[in-house]
Amino acid sequence: MSDRNAKSEYLVLSRGQWDKSLSKEQIQTAIDSFYVWIEGMIDEGKMKHGQRLAVGGKTVGAKGVIVDGPFGESKEVIGGYWFIVAENLDEAAEYISGNPCIQCGLFFELRPLELERARAYAETNETPVEA
């Protein structure tokens, strides 16, 4: 028997950079509105706290190669992460569409959380794509 009202969690990745044509005051207004918006969403049980990411970091790869980073195009920059609690991906997208920072150049990636342990025989994000 499945629970029809079961909610799932979705990771929200904040991506992009502020629109260069906006003033710092306009951006600050969006940031202030964001904090009011997210606290309301948390109070309603629709989101969970996350964090902003600090500037800098390291990338670690095979054979212990460590590189200063992360590096990527500006559209790939991840500024922070949060969690949405929703019945499905469409509902999660509807929730995040209310984020006031969208109007200032940021966009948000939603990813369902996989609750099962990884297995080499299951198709996952890490499975190589066949040619």
Rank of each mutant, 00 (worst) to 15 (best):
M1A: 14
M1E: 10
R4S: 14
N5G: 06
K7H: 07
K7T: 14
S8C: 00
E9F: 04
E9Q: 13
L11W: 06
L11N: 07
L11H: 07
V12R: 00
V12N: 05
L13E: 03
G16L: 12
Q17K: 15
W18L: 08
D19E: 07
K20D: 10
S21H: 09
S21E: 11
S23Q: 06
K24T: 11
E25N: 03
I27H: 01
I27R: 11
I27G: 00
Q28M: 14
F34S: 02
Y35C: 04
W37M: 01
I38W: 04
E39S: 15
E39M: 15
M41K: 14
M41G: 02
M41T: 04
E44C: 01
E44N: 14
G45Y: 09
K46H: 11
K48H: 11
K48T: 02
R52C: 06
R52H: 09
A54H: 05
A54D: 06
G57E: 10
G57V: 10
G57L: 08
K58M: 03
T59I: 13
T59G: 01
T59C: 09
T59M: 15
V60E: 03
V60K: 09
G61M: 15
G61H: 10
A62W: 04
V67M: 13
D68C: 07
G69M: 06
G69W: 05
F71E: 11
G72E: 06
G72D: 04
K75D: 12
E76D: 12
I78H: 02
I78V: 13
Y81Q: 01
W82M: 06
I84M: 07
A86M: 05
N88C: 08
N88E: 08
L89A: 08
L89K: 03
D90Q: 13
D90S: 14
E91N: 08
A93P: 01
Y95I: 15
S97C: 04
G98M: 12
N99F: 00
N99M: 04
P100G: 06
Q103D: 09
Q103Y: 01
L106E: 02
L106D: 01
F108A: 05
F108I: 02
E109S: 03
E109K: 00
L110D: 01
R111G: 00
P112R: 04
P112C: 00
E114Q: 12
E114F: 07
L115I: 09
L115D: 05
L115N: 10
R117A: 14
R117T: 07
A118W: 15
A118T: 08
R119N: 12
R119C: 09
R119K: 15
A120S: 08
Y121D: 11
E123Y: 11
T124L: 12
N125W: 09
E126L: 14
E126R: 10
T127C: 07
T127A: 06
P128G: 12
V129S: 11
V129D: 07
V129L: 14
E130I: 12
E130L: 14
